[in-house]
Structure formats: C-alpha cells, structure tokens
C-alpha cells in the first residue's frame, strides 16, 4: 500500500510506518533510508507531539510538519496503532499529503491490525 502511494505520488520520496514503540512495520522509498533508526525517531516525535499538545490542551495532533532545507517530513499518529512518517519534496501544496493519507487510512488501519497480530496480538 505504501509502495503504491509512493509510485503514484511524485512529490513523496519515502514513507515509513513505525510501531509506536519504534519498530519499522512497512516502508517504501525512492532513496535508501536507514529504516530501523528512522522508525525509532518517528515514534519518538509522534509521542512527544502528543504530550506537548496535551499540556496546552489543544487536543490530539493531526499532523506534525517538519520543514527542512530540502524537503519536508509529515508525521501522523494512526490511532494507538502506529506512526507514519512521510518524506516529501519542499514545494508541495499544503494539505495535499494529509488528504492522501486520510484516503489511505481506513485500509492502513485494517492492514495494521492484521500485521500487529503477528507480533502476538499485544495491541
């Protein structure tokens, strides 16, 4: 599913799906990435974002955006199941990624639940 999204989205250079405790579950990327370490960092960021928005009482984060010199990274927490990191080009239309992810989400959640069962159904 992630590969499909990368294939039909030229603005997306990579996607990493991580468990909330920082293991890589799936990924697709045009470039080589250190998926193990990236998954850990994505999980940390998703967790930190949740805590910091809780502290100022503005609800759960919908999207975390990091704008860098040559690109952007979007991070989404998928229920209490996983965190998704999407790496994109810099010049993308705002809201576009969120839209694409939202469309994919119900399918992803279903797949995730199945995948997580293979870890012993601890979620």
């Amino acid at each position: 599913m992630l590969q499909e999204l990368v294939d039909r989205s030229p603005e997306i250079t990579g996607i990493v799906l991580a468990s909330l405790d920082g293991f890589p579950l799936q990924y697709a990327s045009r470039n080589t990435i250190d998926v193990d370490r990236q998954a850990a960092v994505i999980a940390s960021l998703a967790s930190l974002a949740k805590r910091s928005t809780q502290m100022v009482d503005i609800g759960a984060p919908e999207e975390i955006l990091i704008t860098s010199e040559r690109g952007r990274m979007f991070i989404y927490r998928i229920e209490d199941l996983a965190a998704l990191g999407v790496i994109t080009a810099k010049d993308i239309t705002a809201g576009m990624i969120l839209l694409k992810i939202r469309q994919m989400l119900p399918f992803l959640v279903e797949e995730l639940r199945r995948e997580i069962e293979t870890f012993g159904g601890r979620l």
Binding site: D21, S44, S47, R122
Partner: peptide, 15 residues
C-alpha cells in the same frame, strides 16, 4: 507507549 514485543511490562519510553 505500548510495547509491541514482550519486554515484561506493558509500555516503554520512546523519547
């Protein structure tokens, strides 16, 4: 966050 693997306790620190 909830630990996917069995580490003898339900959660683990992620950051």
């Amino acid at each position: 966050e909830r630990s996917l693997r069995d580490i003898g306790k339900p959660t683990t620190t992620t950051a």
